[in-house]
Design a protein around this nucleic acid. Structure first.
Lengths: 152, 152
DNA sequence: AACCAACGTTGGCACAACCAACGTTGGCAC
DNA sequence: GTGCCAACGTTGGTTGTGCCAACGTTGGTT
């Protein structure tokens, strides 16, 4: 008895939210696979990348820029600080805040992660030509902008 | 008024995997919100929808068609069976298998869920015109097909 | 001085996605 | 037929992401 291996029929296959979550799951697998040799997860990369672009910032700002919850920032930053990729430092002008710096080691590690991730992006987008890739990024960016705007 | 609310700078913003996971997160929120009044989660809908399209099927087949793990099928099916949306029945020709049927009640509930989800899709795709929506579906489908093919 | 807002932190929760293992059953090679 | 392996349903975990509530501390406003 063979199921002709019929994977997923029509209704789900044209449901945008399902397509998004499924492709995101594949993307997540690739990202996890790319980062795990470096003992890093998505949050680690996202924080390092944000930090490298914004420069030193408070944890709350890092959260806003990276879209990670304040409470998750704490744990991730603990990991990064333990590995000396990041330094926490009290803000002299506002004692509620920590100013978080990326260290030279952190920058090197970020560049490693970036390289691994670039490869993963290529694997992810393999079936798409350059124009289609740009189009996908454009459409996703439109969605994201719209759904971040209303109250952001 | 310092931080001009600068949400997410350039690097992440053009990283396909990040765009995908973020938009998928938004989609997931909308789906959850749409289903929760019906006391259902994504798995419940996906299983009912798959069942309605394939007709009665074994749990393993349901898993293959919907992309849900066998073990998660069990728990989800328990929920659905408790609410009489689905019926489990031993396969007379293969005693390892259950044949799962969707009940009339299940069909009605599926139609409710479908309606709620259709609305959610519209909210999700609000910033996209019809052509862009088709394009997005096309591109995501390409990705999904490619990453399901290799060993499926 | 009294408030309220923002900050970092702790500890929790939900959900999707997996994985290993088990006993049962079917199919196939020998 | 016997022996072996594959597939099935099921149980009981684990992980990563995205949340939320609450607390004590600090800053800004009134």
């Amino acid at each position: 008895m063979e199921h002709p291996s019929t994977p997923t029929p029509g209704r789900l296959r044209t449901t945008p939210s399902w397509l998004l979550t499924q492709t995101a799951a594949h993307a997540g697998r690739l990202v996890t696979a790319a980062l795990s040799p470096h003992h890093a997860r998505g949050y680690h990369y996202r924080l390092l990348a944000t930090l490298a672009e914004t420069g030193p910032a408070s944890q709350a700002d890092l959260g806003r820029h990276s879209g990670i919850d304040r409470s998750d920032i704490v744990a991730t930053l603990n990991d990064l600080a333990d590995r000396h990729l990041v330094r926490r430092q009290p803000d002299p002008t506002d004692r509620r805040r920590n100013i978080v710096h990326i260290t030279p080691t952190g920058r090197r590690e970020l560049s490693n992660l970036q390289h691994a991730l670039d490869t993963a992006q290529d694997t992810l987008l393999a079936p798409l030509n350059p124009a289609d890739r740009r189009e996908l990024v454009r459409l996703l960016d439109l969605l994201l902008t719209h759904h971040t705007q209303p109250e952001g």
